[in-house]
Simulated assay, not measured.
Amino acid sequence: MPVDLMQLRREFTSNGLSRAELDGDPFIQFKIWMTQAIEAELTLANAMSLATSDKEGVSIRTVLLKTFDEQGFVFFTNYHSKKSKQLDNNPNIALLFPWLDLERQVKISGTVEKISVLESVKYFASRPKDSQLGAWASAQSSMLSSRQVLLSEFEAMKRKFSQGEVPLPDFWGGYRVIPKTIEFWQGRENRLHDRFVYAKSGNTWKISRLAP
């Protein structure tokens, strides 16, 4: 039996978003919305869909934003993963924050660069030890014959690093997404949503309203 999605509908009831409400700096505007998402106790407010591509096609997955500032948006991963291999060949990237309970989305497009080893070491040291061991144990995106293989490798890492601190793997670290555009989307009634996009122009940002 097919699932009937045609009648799955929700009317957006937000008061909307006006140009006058927007800060001229998209990073400040993002901070305002991220703070509101956290205060609304959304599940993993820092979760974002991350899209990459190569000659074979487009891939998308959910990762966690760990920090951001006027330089960009930072996430961490295995540098041997599929996303990293795609980014090595094509640094173009897109992010999406789906804050649907607030009837909001934020869309970001740009390019990536690896952050410094020092920055990666600082974040890695802040992780729980088992998460650190997990980074060592998982050859991300590689084929596994069973879950037991992964668990066995995790136990091997526990033994290897049973004494002292767990070092940063040389195959693991952060990427910074340097945005070219940042779009703020606010749901409105009758699907007449409010959309504003910030586009980088030299050292400034131009703000435009988009049709929904």
Rank of each mutant, 00 (worst) to 15 (best):
V3N: 13
E11L: 09
N15P: 00
L17P: 05
S18L: 06
S18N: 07
E21D: 15
L22V: 06
D23E: 14
D23W: 04
A40F: 12
N46F: 05
M48Q: 06
S49M: 01
T52F: 08
T52M: 08
E56D: 15
I60V: 12
T62V: 12
L65T: 10
L65S: 09
K66G: 09
F68N: 04
Q71G: 12
F73H: 03
V74D: 11
V74H: 08
F75S: 09
F76S: 09
N78L: 02
K83R: 07
Q86M: 11
Q86H: 13
N90Q: 08
N92Y: 07
F97N: 03
Q105L: 12
V106L: 11
V106W: 06
K107A: 14
T111Q: 13
V112R: 06
V117D: 11
Y123R: 13
K129P: 14
K129C: 11
S138R: 08
S145F: 01
S145A: 13
A156L: 15
M157A: 10
K158P: 00
R159K: 15
K160S: 12
S162H: 06
Q163C: 00
E165L: 10
L168G: 06
P169Q: 13
I182S: 11
I182D: 12
Q186I: 08
H193K: 05
F196V: 01
V197E: 14
Y198T: 05
Y198Q: 04
K200M: 07
G202V: 08
N203A: 00
